[in-house]
């Protein structure tokens, strides 16, 4: 089994295609949609957790790419601007996936981007707006 959180960019021509359906039907993959919307550039954007057998997963990714869907790992999209973060920690209880945590010794705030589900709750609640989204 393999499970990854990825960001899918659907070009305008694919926005009304049942792409995720095919991932399930033809490649036997499980999906959990964390976020989906159409951007101002009329590009479809979906943050999805995709899981399945490694072979199926890779074939599913190949199918997405051959259809014209651009794929990015999620961790590249939500970043912390280190120069703005003051390590206060008010984001920690807001984060639903445990991606933000205080180090008990240094009392600095760690951002584990592999746990991030891109809900963006931290983005506006951060007092110095140190959490940034770059989809």
């Amino acid at each position: 089994m393999i499970s990854k959180r990825i960001v899918l960019h659907f070009p305008h021509r694919l926005v009304n295609q049942p792409i995720v359906y095919k991932l399930v039907k033809d490649y036997d993959l499980q999906f959990n949609i964390l976020k989906a919307y159409v951007t101002q550039q009329e590009e479809g954007l979906m943050v999805i957790e995709l899981a399945g057998k490694k072979e199926n997963f890779n074939r599913g990714i190949e199918y997405l790419q051959s259809s014209g869907v651009k794929i990015q790992p999620l961790s590249q999209d939500v970043i912390r601007n280190e120069s703005k973060c003051t390590d206060c920690g008010v984001c920690v209880p807001i984060c639903p996936s445990g991606a933000l945590a205080v180090d008990p010794l240094t009392r600095k705030v760690h951002f584990y981007d592999n746990k991030c589900i891109a809900c963006e709750l931290c983005v506006k609640t951060c007092p110095t707006r140190a959490m940034e989204v770059h989809f």
Partner: peptide, 25 residues
């Protein structure tokens, strides 16, 4: 508070500090 959780009314509640301890240090 600094342990990250407190108990109130039977509920385990996560805590967050607005004041940066590491910067204060």
């Amino acid at each position: 508070l600094k342990s990250g959780r407190i108990n109130l009314q039977g509920k385990d509640i996560p805590t967050g500090n607005l004041s940066s301890y590491s910067k204060a240090r």
